[in-house]
């Protein structure tokens, strides 16, 4: 049993990503979407925390949202995998429930 968590807020504006990551169970997946994709930046103040969590979680980022915001792949954490909209659907189907962190 596992959960797909989605986060759509910048971690520099709200505590949403932090709260999400602190409530995940091992084996869960986190998908950063919309402004949530800023949580995938490699050189940010959040990077160490996200990197540490990636040991027990699968962390994804919505590629159309990073592209829209001009975040090149080499600016993103290597531990974070890019997905497209079809990949989003696959993630929803693969997990038992989806929890949207607003």
């Amino acid at each position: 049993m596992s959960t797909l968590h989605t986060v759509n807020k910048s971690p520099f504006a709200t505590q949403t990503l932090m709260s999400c990551l602190n409530h995940c169970k091992d084996g869960d997946a986190v998908l950063m979407i919309e402004d949530g994709v800023y949580g995938a930046l490699a050189n940010s103040g959040m990077a160490d925390f996200v990197r540490a969590k990636s040991a027990s979680l699968a962390i994804y980022v919505m590629s159309p949202d990073t592209a829209a915001r001009g975040l090149a792949e080499d600016k993103l954490l290597g531990e974070v995998s890019g997905v497209d909209y079809a990949g989003f659907v696959d993630l929803v189907a693969k997990h038992d429930r989806t929890q949207s962190w607003l």
């Binding site: 409530h23 169970k25 929890q99």
Partner: peptide, 12 residues
């Protein structure tokens, strides 16, 4: 976290 993982549907 355990409560959340025990649900069928989670609405935020």
């Amino acid at each position: 976290a355990d409560v959340m993982a025990d649900q069928d549907v989670v609405l935020s």
